[in-house]
Design a protein around this nucleic acid. Sequence first.
DNA 1: CGGTATCCTGCAGGATACTG
DNA 2: CAGTATCCTGCAGGATACCG
Lengths: 108, 108
Amino acid sequence: MNKEKIEKPENKCELQKILDIIGGKWSMSIIYALIPEKRRFKELERIIPGISTRMLVKELKNMEENGIVTRTAFATVPPTVEYNLTAKGKKLDPIINDLYQWGLEYIN
Amino acid sequence: MNKEKIEKPENKCELQKILDIIGGKWSMSIIYALIPEKRRFKELERIIPGISTRMLVKELKNMEENGIVTRTAFATVPPTVEYNLTAKGKKLDPIINDLYQWGLEYIN
DNA sequence: CGGTATCCTGCAGGATACTG
DNA sequence: CAGTATCCTGCAGGATACCG
């Protein structure tokens, strides 16, 4: 029937909306993998240790809907699909890098 | 019986270890609330909209174990407990602020 | 290659009542 | 005030098989 998103009138605070976008178990790893260059689907699956096909698809879809990445499909055989960071997504680069550095300094 | 943490020999990548610490639904909100000054328990509960007692306790405990916040109890009646950011926690300030700003700029 | 489609499970997180 | 102690539920995330 109605497959539209249910607009809950919650006013989640900003930080929680952000976590909806990049708080998933794999989102940051995916962004991190896309920082140096655009990647193909299987490439991401290989680069990111432990991720499942299902989750990679889900997170990529979510991030695409949220304007973090772009998906470009080429009608080749076999199919080729490239994922890339948008400008919006690239703005997250330094932040994720800072987080990463913080982790290196303080974890373990 | 054995209540010690089970040390899984997984080598989670850094970003995921970081999410274990500050990826919870409320962690960042708590840190954010502690940035300006130390806070008492009930104060945090009041300031952070929607959080439950149980979750506030859990996240605070987790963050204490991870050296993000300190807990100071005073033997008053009724009890007084103050939570404060550690140096390690304070290093997250600018990062969370950047994230917050990113959210302001790009969400909605 | 780049995905769907299913089935399944644990645990994050909520609600509520009680305590020193 | 600052928490415990329980009970409960949804859904994030995993595993596996199949498709164009």
